[in-house]
Amino acid sequence: MDPQHLNLIYLIIAAAVATFLTRVGGYILITQMKQIPPRLEAALNAVPAAVLTTLVAPAFVYGGFDVTIAMFVAFAIALGLSLSTLRMLVIGWVVVMLIRHVVM
């Protein structure tokens, strides 16, 4: 196995260990600690939305106009109709395919 591929394997193992730590961490903490400081809890609470937003916003701005339009339409319809993520994916995909193969 070449070293670069080996690095990927290590990366996956590290990700698996990190994930397992989150899954067992709360159990260990709750049996040790009485209360999480409120600011720490607020910060932890913000983590997923903050991290995931950084994967969305740049794609929206720099992804090209077809990606921008598809993301916007998927967002607007999914929010308006409270659609599931899967339906939202279908809408985004249909819009981008229409732009790429019909409009262009």
């Binding site: 969305v56 993301m71 999914a78 981008v96």
Partner: peptide, 12 residues
């Protein structure tokens, strides 16, 4: 298009 839209769904 799927990953950005998927992440957008997660954020929502």
């Amino acid at each position: 298009i799927l990953l950005p839209v998927y992440f957008m769904g997660l954020v929502m």
